[in-house]
């Protein structure tokens, strides 16, 4: 069906990772998502942008079962999500999520934050979990902080811990909800570098971000949202440089 998406980059959509079909969501009587349809291919990097309140977070949270939705359908690797918020094993094993304000567990050390899921859910022994977590912390460049508590780290370091924590569960898809918005400009780069490296490994990623430099560098497609609707989808050079809608251009002028 949506596989024949005209704007899809060739080759990447061999198999869809996420299919969203006519998704509608209401908060009470407020219509937050309106007929959203989108397909994210395996290994695709999708950047979602749009003005505040346009429903970006809501969309990405629906994918991950953090919000319930009322109409439409979401399939992940062909498996349909239930509409209510029931915690779904398959979804949480398949997707990792990184939040704007990190949401690290403040009472656990950096290492424990990363090994928690491995020891309790994946039944790894303490030392196996430790090895995996240390490997990931090394990848994001903070292995020397493993024994600190999150409160003792800078924002950029905390966000990198959050990324390692998600990666430790070996997800197939990573969701990012404005991972750099709470950071000082100097720290934004260290987090983006990690995300670029992750993109190069072939991870499927859906990122809500306003970092247009990042979008141009790694995104396969960019989605522009407004008032709960998708206005434009396409490769970054098309959406970012030659937008077809006035609203997109206005927004881009605003943030660039």
């Amino acid at each position: 069906m949506t596989l024949s998406d005209p704007q899809a980059p060739a080759g990447k959509l061999s198999r869809p990772a996420i299919e969203i079909d006519n998704l509608n969501k209401w908060f009470g009587s407020y219509h937050a998502l309106r007929d959203v349809s989108l397909t994210v291919g395996e290994q695709e990097i999708m950047v979602v942008c749009g003005p505040s309140g346009s429903g970006k977070s809501t969309l990405i949270r629906c994918l991950n079962h953090l919000e319930e939705y009322q109409e439409g359908r979401i399939c992940v690797f062909g498996q349909e999500l239930a509409r209510d918020q029931k915690s779904d094993r398959f979804i949480h094993q398949t997707m990792g999520m990184v939040f704007q304000n990190f949401n690290l567990f403040p009472h656990l050390t950096v290492l424990q934050n990363c090994t928690l899921g491995l020891t309790w859910l994946r039944k790894k022994t303490e030392s196996e979990a430790r090895d995996i977590a240390m490997g990931l912390l090394e990848r994001v460049g903070i292995e020397h902080l493993a024994d600190r508590f999150p409160g003792q780290l800078s924002g950029g370091q905390q966000q990198r811990v959050a990324i390692s924590r998600s990666l430790a569960m070996d997800p197939k898809i990573m969701l990012f909800d404005e991972p750099t918005s709470a950071l000082d400009p100097e720290m934004v780069k260290e987090v983006l570098d990690v995300m670029v490296k992750l993109a190069e490994t072939g991870m499927t990623m859906v990122c809500v971000t306003h970092e247009m430099q990042f979008a141009r560098q790694v995104a396969d497609r960019v989605v522009f949202m407004q008032d709960g609707e998708i206005v434009e989808v396409g490769p970054p050079e098309q959406v970012l440089l030659h937008p077809q809608w006035d609203r997109t251009r206005e927004f881009l002028n605003h943030i660039l």
Binding site: H65, L66, S87, R89, G96, N103, F105, L121, S166
Partner: peptide, 21 residues
């Protein structure tokens, strides 16, 4: 904060593990 529940849920921890850990 709600974020703690959400982070635990996205890791796949169920109700009792989320509460207990």
């Amino acid at each position: 904060p709600d974020g703690q529940y959400e982070a635990a849920q996205t890791l796949g921890l169920g109700y009792w593990l989320t509460m207990g850990l």
